[in-house]
Every structure is written in structure tokens, then in C-alpha cells.
Design a binder for these strands. Structure first.
Length: 404
DNA sequence: TCTGGGGTCCTAGGACCC
DNA sequence: TCTGGGGTCCTAGGACCC
């Protein structure tokens, strides 16, 4: 049986949500109506555009441009700082509205959802529901969404990306040739800036060109990715809407430092602070990690990462930060000027799944200590509680808006 | 004061085992 | 003396997404 899928995509999410919040707080300007962007903070060296208004887009401002570039392209553009607590609130508002239509919702990102509406068997009913969602979000929540209507997730997502904002688009199988095939390959989901030039060199320019390219040739040239791009170009996607809460596969935290660091002692403090955040989140999921990974970015934007297996799965700050420091020392073998430091854990397992053997070596005392600290953090907010020995690192980190 | 931060999945090479 | 070959685990890096 054919699935009935909707993809709901918030238009200029961060900017729209900021606009609605500002209006609610008594602002007399709607930043959706002026040249404006949501961006990081240049003084913290995180100055890139995260979202832009239509007027800013008309000047040529693109997502991920530097704030510096945005100002050049669009003199007088207004810059607003991002605030993920606000985004989470509006994202939840959208989710709660969509839940009135089905429980089978996948939160694909903070501003995108897939809905499995297979219960609405009539095609017209499905399209009517899409328009209803579009209208209700606008009226009840104050921002606009695009809704894509199709028989699989890929086509629904491609459809919601057609003309914006505030639109409903369908992309059923019989519409692929007219609506999707004429588009340039760069518009196809999962074709990024590395693959597109390679396809161009093969004289493949449109999605139709790709759809009609020999599948085996693509397989040979691009491996699994080649098969996937051929299927996507032909509108083939059998994936399910993953509506059940999924546990994360890895958890990471990284920070671009306010200035480059050359001393390993300072890096150690940053690594400890990052490991604290990572393990805090890990424990909130009731999970344990088997692998620790440290990432460094030099002043020249050269990224390296090293990872190591832990002797046993753990979630304690002590063991994970110890391993992270070990890795840091292994990586920092020559003078380096570091711009970004990251710590992440992978190979996560659920805590209950770990059977407690008689020879269990997990440090129960450390776990209890971590639990006390976590409870305090939950009560007073994350940044109120710091650990002795990370004061300098805290000086760097407290500048950032740390997400829970 | 040019270049974020959070993820997922895949690949390729080396180690190691039988 | 012409030294195979399959399988798994581990690691580093790359590509892509929002």
C-alpha cells in the first residue's frame, strides 16, 4: 500500500521565530520585513549567517556566509543573535499542533517534521490536511511553513523545498518528470558541493540527466552513495517515518575558542569542561559510551580527530575526561595553534543493557558524585555549577550559550 | 573581527585471527 | 619459497544534512 507522507518545513525558522518572539515582547518591527539575519557573534569568532529574511536574501546573502560578507552584500543589514531556548519552544509548539493529526511524526530537525498520514487514504483528504496545517500554523503560532505532500519521504521533502514561503506542494509519482526532473542536480537531497562538480564533469546537470544515467556506472563511481543518488533522482525511497524517540548514536560538544590557544595546559581545561557537558547529557539519556573522540581545528582550519576505545562502557566525567586528555596528548605532539576543540562520545549503549557482573569495575563512588552534581545542575541551571580546576576553561565556555 | 555546532553514515587501510 | 583468503575490529577522515 502506498504511504501518504507530509513534510512540514518552517520558513526561515530561526529568523521567523525570533520575529514572532520580538513582536510578542512588544517590538514594533517585524524583522521578517526588513533586511535581517540571525547570526553568531563575530567577537566570539562564530560570525556566520544561520538564517536570513527575504530582503537579505535578495541582496545575495546566503546561509553560512560570514557576518562580514553579509554586511558587504547588504549594507545596513540588521544582525540578531541566535537563541536556541526560544527555537526549542517554537519547535515544540509546532510539534504539539502536528500531533493533533497523527502520532507518527518524525522530528527530522529543529524545524522539520515528517508525518505518516497513511490513514488518510483519499488523496484529496491528504492535500486538504496539508492546507489545513499550513493555515493553522500561521493563525495559531504566527509563523509560516511549507508543506510537501507525496507518497514517500524523499519526494515530500523535495516538494516542500519548491517555491517558498507559505506554500503547499505535491510531488506524486506522475509529477516527477515535470516538477523534479528539470531541477539542477544541486537541488537533489544528499547531493552536496563535493559531488555536484563530479557529476557536472560527467555531463550530468539536471535531476533528469541523473535519473537516466546508468545505475551501475554510478555504483562503480560513487559506491553506495551512487546507488542512492540514482534512486533519489528516480523518486525511489522506501524509508519509514521514524516516529519513535530514538536514542542518540553519539554525543558531542565543541567550541570555537575566543582566541587561538598554543598551550596544552589550557587545552586540557577546555577538554575537561567539554567532557563534563558531554557526560552530563550522556547520563540524562541513561546511556554509557564505549568510545571517546577528540577533535582539534588549527588556526589554518585543518581538522584532525583521534578516537579511543574505553576498557569498559562508562558515563563518568572522570573516566571520559581522562581518556580525552590522553588522546589530546597523543594529538598535540608539536607546537600547534588551536582554534576549535571538540569532545564526543560514540558507540553508546543503554545502561540497562549492560549486565552487572560480579567483576564490574564501574566506579560507583564516582557515579554517585556525578549524580549529585547533575541534580544540582538540573535545579539551578547548567552554568551555575562548575568544578574546581576548570575555572579558566569556564572563562571561555561561559561566553557560550550552553544548550541542555 | 572571514570561515558554527550538532549530528549520521560510509570508506579505506591496518591489525589480528583462523 | 609462487606469500591465500575471509572475517571482524579499530581508527581517521570525508561527505552530507540542518
Amino acid at each position: 500500500m502506498k504511504k501518504q507522507i507530509l513534510h512540514v518545513d518552517v520558513n526561515n525558522a530561526f529568523l521567523s521565530w525570533t520575529a514572532v518572539e520580538m513582536l510578542k515582547n512588544g517590538s514594533n518591527i517585524d524583522i521578517r520585513e526588513i533586511p535581517a539575519v540571525i547570526g553568531g557573534d563575530e567577537t566570539k569568532r562564530s560570525g556566520i549567517v544561520l538564517a536570513k529574511s527575504m530582503k537579505a536574501k535578495e541582496c545575495g546573502v546566503k546561509t553560512a556566509d560570514t557576518i562580514y560578507q553579509a554586511k558587504l552584500k547588504c549594507p545596513g543589514v540588521k544582525i540578531y543573535q541566535s537563541n536556541f531556548n526560544i527555537y526549542r519552544k517554537y519547535s515544540d509548539g509546532l510539534y504539539n499542533l502536528l500531533r493533533q493529526y497523527t502520532d507518527k511524526i518524525e522530528r527530522f530537525s529543529i524545524d522539520e517534521c515528517f508525518l505518516d498520514m497513511t490513514e488518510y487514504l483519499m488523496k484529496d483528504t491528504l492535500i486538504n490536511k496539508a492546507y489545513e496545517i499550513n493555515r493553522r500554523v500561521k493563525e495559531e503560532l504566527g509563523f509560516t511553513v511549507n508543506v510537501g505532500v507525496a507518497h514517500n519521504k524523499l519526494l515530500a521533502k523535495m516538494a516542500s523545498d519548491f517555491t517558498k514561503p507559505d506554500r503547499v506542494h505535491t510531488l506524486f509519482e506522475e509529477e516527477i518528470e515535470t516538477k523534479m526532473w528539470p531541477l539542477p542536480i544541486s537541488e537533489l537531497f544528499m547531493l552536496g558541493k563535493k559531488t555536484v562538480p563530479k557529476l557536472y564533469n560527467m555531463q550530468i546537470r539536471t535531476i533528469e540527466d541523473l535519473a537516466k544515467t546508468n545505475k551501475e556506472l554510478l555504483h562503480k563511481k560513487f559506491g553506495k552513495h551512487g546507488l542512492q543518488m540514482w534512486e533519489y533522482a528516480n523518486g525511489i525511497d522506501n524509508s519509514e517515518v521514524h516516529f519513535e524517540k530514538e536514542k542518540p548514536k553519539g554525543i558531542g560538544n565543541s567550541i570555537t575558542l575566543p582566541e587561538n590557544i598554543t598551550e596544552i595546559e589550557k587545552l586540557e581545561e577546555i577538554v575537561l569542561a567539554l567532557a563534563e557537558q558531554v557526560t552530563y547529557r550522556l547520563r540524562k539519556y541513561d546511556m554509557l559510551a564505549k568510545t571517546v573522540n577528540v577533535q582539534l581545528r588549527t588556526k589554518d582550519f585543518v581538522d584532525t580527530s583521534h578516537q579511543k576505545k574505553l576498557p569498559e562502557a562508562t558515563a563518568t566525567t572522570k573516566e571520559i575526561s581522562k581518556k580525552a586528555k590522553e588522546i589530546l596528548h597523543e594529538m598535540f605532539h608539536k607546537p600547534m595553534s588551536i582554534r576549535l576543540v571538540g569532545v564526543r562520545v560514540d558507540n553508546l549503549v543503554e545502561k540497562e543493557e549492560m549486565q552487572l557482573s560480579l567483576f564490574d569495575k564501574r566506579d560507583e563512588k564516582q557515579e554517585k558524585l556525578d549524580k549529585v552534581v547533575d541534580a544540582l545542575k538540573n535545579k539551578y541551571g547548567y552554568n551555575k555549577i562548575t568544578r574546581a580546576g576548570k575555572m579558566n576553561a569556564g572563562d571561555y565556555l561561559k561566553l557560550k550559550d550552553i544548550k541542555k
